[in-house]
Design a binder for these strands. Structure first.
Lengths: 207, 207, 207, 207
DNA sequence: TATGAATGAGAGTTCATTCAT
DNA sequence: TATGAATGAACTCTCATTCAT
């Protein structure tokens, strides 16, 4: 098996200038991924777009994979934050309201940077998806499972593991697909309808 | 926007020897995609694995993309066949039985060559997913919509377009995820349970 | 030193069909040289344009170089014929008339297939010019020298070798350049003027 | 019509090390053109001979054509310098002396790197000759025309354009041919005789 | 630390030539 | 004899990565 390239940043960049350089590099990587796709994202171009030299890039990242990993992480954090907040907000709500809000949050999360999201979920060679992009789902999954656990008296008896899998997978697929492949049709009204339908799907499934 | 590489085969390979070469190339491509992923699939490696020279590869395919496209097409045809057959079989059945059979068929389809399916759906730069892999879904989608249309008196009034989107997307996501990410847990029993749950999800949604 | 590829045809092609194939190949080569230049003239394209298979090409010619050599030879023969005829016609004429006719003939010769001529004289890697294209000049040169020898009493005393060199080189350069680089300006009138000037150049030089 | 490959250098190479690399590459290209001809001049061989990696080659030149263009330019500059100096020196001289000096200069110029000159003028596919090598002639041509213009009272009335064409083309052909094809016979004495004859050719033509 | 010139393995691709049919 | 599938050396060019300055 081929050794995987390292994906951890090289130093912790405590100093301020360093931090700025690192951010610029991650941002440049994200922008190039969006505009040109994964294979066109060469280290030289990234460094150029970030306004630093290749040498500097390698001072902060051990290689291209690490940069992409950083982008994935940053994007993942943004998504997770949205989802986490939603799940917190929803903890005390009855199921239907909760599901509705979660679905709205899922759509909101997918709208953060849809094209980047698409690139990250579609063009990640090997390493990518399983290791990093999926972490996102996995946290979401755990949080949702916890919600179900706390509200288990509101619906039929069911294997929580399984129910969480069904719900999270469906919601993620619907919102992902809606935002990425049908965003042009996603008017405010359509948005409402979609949330209605998805909510119905989940709620009736759990009942 | 960058011009996309051509994906049409170069000749149609009428002679017998040619046909064997073409098949060997497509098969080799599929195998390498599975074992090494998209970016490691170089034309030389493909030719090598197929037991032919690079020259022969270029006699039949204008480049790597065309080979991958051929793999996508071949795999897509296999999947579509399964789905199409299921939808035909199911045309006259009442909803619950129909949905159950369709879900089983979806799982069966995803089991044809799951790793290949994963690679094809995850690592397709540009060309791939949107253009070809999605055609699959799109036919499935149309067929399912037709089923709903024919059985519209069995369930609540709903925008068929939207309902088809919700159902197909959910089923596809659940079966895809189950087969690809959790296949080790997918014992016969678990399989049954999953079909039960997915059927419940869809049927109750439509009612 | 690298061995030069063979340039002799493989067989003498006595049969009629063979002759036709050989001609088609030479003609196809000439046409492709004209339209696409030397490096784009691949054996497969030549064979294709000639309406035969590559295999057949190699039945009659040992390689690409031999084909080009055949084109050079054919073209050279046509040129030489024009020049030879002119020199014969002119043998008995006094110098000024003779020179005038020779220059007109040189222009006529360059007009046979100017673009082919250009390609042959400009894009011939290694082998080319020195070996074959120059033969042309060398026969012309000998014939002209003979003319001078026969008419030595009509002009000043001069080393015939040298005089022939000066005259042939100048005439060839002027006609070549006029036809290839300035053909658009070469109206009938301009043509006359050019012949006048070139004649003056040579005649006064010899006097 | 096929798009021509780019011939402009990629960077201007400000640093010292860069400059050395660029020079080494141009020099290596020139040497290989001389010893092996245009088609054998592969980028890898050029880089190898220059003692740098292919990568470096492509850092400064977009391809082989650009390297050759640089060689043409460098060589052209050297030639032009000789010719330009001669024409300046000669500006005030009477015609016969002027022509004699110009012819000597033309020979001198052709002797700078005769084999390179031959390759550059004979084997330039497409791009080469017409675009760059001819510029040389075109400047020479303009300068000579200016000389004629300034001295028009010293010779018969004649279309300056045409006279310049005849003179420059003839001188260039004679010196080119003498240096390239007959250099072994070009003793000092033969040299003198050649200059005499060429001068006679031009002077009497103009009178 | 930052720079960017240099590296070179390796990818994509072409094409003269051969040879089984 | 004719065919055209197959070959593979050779070529152009890119890009992740290093290292002298």
């Amino acid at each position: 098996m081929a050794r995987k390239p390292p994906t951890k940043p090289r130093k912790h960049a405590t100093q301020q200038r360093s931090r700025a350089t690192v951010d610029a590099l991650i941002e440049a990587t994200a922008r190039i991924l969006v505009t040109d796709g994964f294979d066109k994202a060469s280290t030289n171009r990234i460094a150029g777009k970030a306004g630093v030299s290749v040498g500097s890039l390698y001072q902060y990242f051990p290689g291209k994979e690490a940069l992409v990993a950083a982008v994935v992480e940053r994007h993942g954090n943004e998504l997770t934050q949205v989802v986490r907040r939603a799940l917190t907000d929803v903890a005390a709500l009855p199921m239907e309201q909760a599901v509705r809000k979660l679905i709205a949050a899922a759509i909101e999360a997918h709208r953060i940077d849809p094209t980047l999201h698409r690139v990250l979920s579609e063009q990640m060679p090997r390493t990518g998806k399983s290791e990093s992009m999926e972490m996102l789902s996995s946290e979401t999954y755990a949080l949702f499972r916890a919600y179900l656990d706390a509200h288990r008296d509101e619906f039929r008896q069911v294997d929580l593991e399984l129910a969480a899998f069904v719900c999270v997978t469906s919601i993620e697929a619907l919102t992902h697909s809606a935002v990425l492949h049908h965003s042009e049709q996603l008017t405010d009204e359509a948005f409402e309808v979609l949330v209605d339908e998805a909510t119905r799907l989940i709620v009736r499934y759990l009942q």
